[in-house]
């Protein structure tokens, strides 16, 4: 346990720079987005009100008030989020492969630590999770700040205010990242963790058997997916809706846990018996 925490901390220190860069890009881009979108709206309002002599009431009726949703739906807001997602996805692979590359082969050190080698797996997957939650937490922190900036720029009567939750609810894409309830949060990110564990297993297969390992990894991933969706397939094509939805949910959770356990066991086996530096 202690060694696991030490490894988590060590791995975390290795990504803080990349992590800080992602946070910085997100913050700057989104703030710029708030300013740009707000200014566009204000420019349009000025044009209509003062050049076309439209009355305020008519303007508001035909163009509507500005809400933060306009910002959320712009590329300024979504772009950095997509970048962060890509960053995390990329990092799932980098977190392993960087230990093999170069002449400083850190993997020797990791594998020779007097601790179970599965701790390396746990530490790396924990880091992916921390990084992901860190980005989500950061987004939740900067959202109110961005809303304040918009409040400062757009006068009251031209603005509808929404709460963070209302904004998240209005964007289905955002509810995947920031689900509505804690249960969904656990289920969504649990599923994410499961996917990462499958990918890690596939990576370790490649690291153990190289070319053959790539195929083994692909087959393992496909098998995991089939096992995962087998209750759904059975329900749809064989059992004609035999299960009640809640039973199906429980079955899916059980299947997820089985696949997770299989991935961890397989990764442990590979790290112990099959890995090659």
């Amino acid at each position: 346990m202690k060694n696991y925490l030490k490894l988590v901390n060590f791995e975390l220190n290795r990504i803080t720079k990349l992590f800080a860069v992602l946070l910085g890009i997100t913050f700057v881009t989104q703030i710029v987005g708030v300013i740009v979108v707000s200014r566009d709206y204000l420019n349009m309002a000025n044009e209509k009100l003062y050049e076309e002599m439209m009355s305020k009431a008519v303007f508001l009726e035909s163009f509507g008030q500005m809400s933060f949703l306009q910002i959320v739906k712009s590329v300024w807001f979504v772009g950095p989020i997509a970048l962060c997602i890509a960053g995390v996805a990329f990092y799932i692979f980098i977190i392993w492969y960087r230990d093999w590359v170069g002449k400083n082969t850190f993997i020797y050190r990791l594998l020779m630590l007097p601790t179970t080698r599965l701790n390396i797996f746990y530490a790396k997957i924990t880091n992916i999770l921390i990084m992901t939650f860190g980005l989500v937490a950061f987004q939740l922190i900067i959202l109110p700040i961005e809303m304040l900036v918009m409040k400062g720029m757009v006068p009251n009567e031209f603005r509808t205010d929404m709460s963070v939750k209302e904004i998240v609810n209005s964007m289905p894409e955002l509810t995947i990242i920031i689900p509505n309830s804690v249960i969904e949060l656990i289920l969504y990110y649990g599923a994410g963790l499961l996917v990462v564990s499958i990918l890690f297993t596939a990576i370790l297969m490649e690291r153990s058997f190289r070319w053959k390992g790539i195929f083994a990894g692909l087959i393992y991933s496909a098998l995991a997916v089939v096992v995962l969706i087998s209750p759904l397939l059975l329900q749809e094509f064989v059992l004609n809706g035999f299960f009640y939805p809640i039973e199906l949910l429980v079955l899916e959770i059980v299947m997820g846990l089985i696949v997770l356990a299989a991935s961890i066991w397989m990764s442990g086996f590979l790290l112990m018996k099959k890995i090659t530096v």
């Binding site: 988590v8 901390n9 975390l12 220190n13 803080t16 921390i130 939650f133 860190g134 989500v136 937490a137 950061f138 939740l140 922190i141 963070v164 939750k165 920031i178 509505n180 309830s181 804690v182 949060l185």
Partner: peptide, 24 residues
């Protein structure tokens, strides 16, 4: 001392996400 980054990140995550769900 060397765990401060780790601790800080975890605290920020728990506080931020926790506040959001408690609030909602």
């Amino acid at each position: 001392k060397k765990y401060w980054k780790f601790a800080a990140i975890i605290i920020v995550i728990v506080l931020s996400i926790g506040t959001f769900y408690v609030n909602s």
